[in-house]
Simulated scan of single mutants.
Amino acid sequence: MWEAVPRLLGGNRYLVLATADREGRPWATPVFFAARDEDRLFWVSAPDSRHSRNIAGRPDVAITVFDSHAPVGGAEALYLEAAAGPADDPVAALTALNARLPAGKELTGDDLAPTGSLVAYRADVRGHFVLVRGGDARFDNVTDARLRVTRPR
C-alpha cells in the first residue's frame, strides 16, 4: 500500500499539522506544503505563530494529508509521525514550494527571516501510515484503521 504515500503527497496541497506546547496542550493547523520526497516536507510559517512556537519547544509533530473533497466513504488519508524544525536548507524548501505555487505567487529569500516575516520549516518523517477503510476486503476490520507502510526495497 506504499503507492498511496507519493500519490497523496503529490495530489494534495495542504496538510494538517498537529503540534503540542511544552505542557502538552495540542494545536492543529492547515498549512500549504511541498514534499521533497516521502521523507521530508516543507512549508513556511511565521515564527510567532502558535504551531511554530510549539515546534520550537517540542519538535515531535503529527501530520495528516487528505482530500477534503472526497465523497463520504471514499476518503484516503496519509498519517505521518515526524520531527519538525526550521529547514536546514531554506533554498531547497523554497524551490520545492515554488514548484507548487501559481505563477506570480512564488516565494523569494526576501520573504524569509531575517528580512522577511516567514521561516521555512521542514518535517523529517519517521513513520508513514495509510487509512484502511472499514470493511476493506483485504483486512479483517469493521471500522476504519491505520496501517503502517514502508517503502518497498
Rank of each mutant, 00 (worst) to 15 (best):
G57Y: 01
P59N: 07
V91S: 15
T95F: 07
A77S: 09
S49V: 04
P86S: 12
L78T: 05
F42D: 02
R58F: 03
S52G: 05
P90Y: 06
A84W: 07
R40L: 14
R58H: 11
D67S: 00
D60I: 10
D88L: 13
G57T: 09
F42L: 01
S52I: 08
T95S: 11
E76Q: 13
S52V: 01
D37C: 07
A77W: 09
A46F: 05
A87Q: 04
V61M: 03
W43Q: 00
A56T: 10
V44F: 03
L80M: 08
S49H: 07
F66S: 13
E81L: 11
T64N: 09
A87V: 01
V91L: 14
D60T: 12
D89K: 05
P71M: 10
L80E: 08
P90W: 09
S49N: 13
D39L: 05
W43C: 02
A62H: 09
E76R: 15
A83C: 11
D39V: 07
H69S: 14
P90V: 01
P71N: 12
I63W: 00
D88C: 13
E38W: 02
L41E: 00
S49L: 03
D60G: 14
A56Y: 13
F42P: 01
L41G: 04
S45I: 06
V91A: 15
I63H: 00
G85P: 04
E81V: 13
P86F: 09
P86M: 08
L94M: 06
F66P: 09
A93E: 03
A92L: 09
S68W: 11
P47C: 06
R50C: 02
A70D: 12
H51Q: 09
A70R: 10
P71D: 13
L94H: 03
L80F: 03
A56L: 12
Y79H: 14
L78P: 03
D89R: 06
S68R: 15
A75I: 13
V44Y: 04
A82N: 01
P86V: 05
Y79A: 09
A87H: 00
D89E: 09
L80H: 04
A62Y: 04
V65N: 11
A82S: 07
T64H: 13
A84S: 05
T64E: 10
P47Y: 07
E81N: 11
D37G: 00
A87G: 03
A96L: 03
T64S: 14
A82F: 02
S68P: 15
D37P: 00
V91T: 12
A75Y: 12
A56P: 07
G74F: 15
G74D: 13
P90M: 06
V65Q: 08
A87I: 01
D37S: 05
I55Y: 00
A84D: 02
L80D: 06
R36F: 04
S52T: 03
F42K: 00
E76F: 10
W43H: 05
P59M: 05
D67M: 05
Y79G: 06
A77I: 06
W43L: 03
D89Y: 11
D60S: 10
A35G: 07
R53Q: 10
P86C: 13
R50K: 08
A83P: 01
E38I: 02
A70P: 05
A87M: 04
E76T: 04
T95N: 12
E76A: 11
N54V: 02
